[in-house]
């Protein structure tokens, strides 16, 4: 009888599966303000990294079985707690998870919003309406400007530069879902020395956003 109780309790614990983001530089965990080797003899550091993850839903046989309401989550490297997107997924049967990278266009035209969407979070353009989906800032000695800075502010909610993207990954009940993004791979692919400043919606912003959504990988953990 006692064993049986313990068994039930442990079974309940298994159900608290979470969704989180893991940001890396190559095989290392990414830390803010830390210098990393770039190419062979250059260095790079990330000083700011913010990403909106939104509209998380679960699917079974390509049919939506669950959707998180008001699902707009700002991952901010300055606050480790924000790396966890959902603390507990519902104990239902699913085989895929769908996540949105950025903010969809409907939300972009809905006026002032609160929580992570509050414009005080620094993810809203002021001179022109629209959310910044992804903000990556840092320094790299290859960039020949003042302080060797780069600033990538990716966003855009209007055609033809609509940058919001949804991606699906295989998932499994009872397994934690970890969404991985390798910043080293990103900086190499976009050739950061060539594109150091993006501050408004554009074709380049759209292409880089697409690149990032394709670079996301998922790891399922027990």
């Amino acid at each position: 009888m006692r064993y049986c109780l313990i068994f039930i309790l442990s079974a309940i614990q298994i159900y608290s599966t979470e969704v989180s983001v893991s940001l890396t530089y190559g095989i290392e965990k990414l830390g803010l303000d830390k210098y990393y080797q770039f190419n062979t003899k250059d260095s790079v550091r990330i000083t700011k990294l913010k990403i909106f993850i939104s509209n998380v839903s679960l699917l079974k046989n390509d049919k939506e079985v669950w959707r998180k309401s008001r699902s707009y989550h700002l991952v901010d490297m300055d606050n480790v707690a924000t790396l966890t997107i959902i603390k507990e997924l519902p104990p239902i049967d699913y085989d895929k998870i769908s996540i949105g990278l950025g903010i969809d266009s409907t939300t972009n035209v809905s006026g002032a919003l609160g929580g992570d969407l509050d414009p005080t979070k620094g993810m809203y353009w002021t001179w022109q309406s629209g959310y910044i989906n992804i903000k990556i800032e840092g320094n790299c000695n290859l960039i020949k400007n003042r302080n060797n800075e780069f600033q990538l502010h990716l966003g855009g909610y209007q055609f033809p530069n609509y940058t919001y993207l949804e991606t699906q990954f295989p998932a499994k009940q009872d397994k934690d879902i970890i969404i991985e993004l390798d910043i080293k791979e990103l900086l190499e692919k976009i050739q950061i020395a060539e594109i150091s400043h993006i501050m408004s919606p554009s074709k380049t912003a759209k292409n880089i956003s697409l690149m990032i959504s394709k670079m996301l990988k998922v790891q399922l953990n027990d």
Partner: peptide
Amino acid sequence: GAINHLDMQALAPISN
């Protein structure tokens, strides 16, 4: 027409 909603209008002059 850079601003798409009355709520967001004030952000522009505040930040300019």
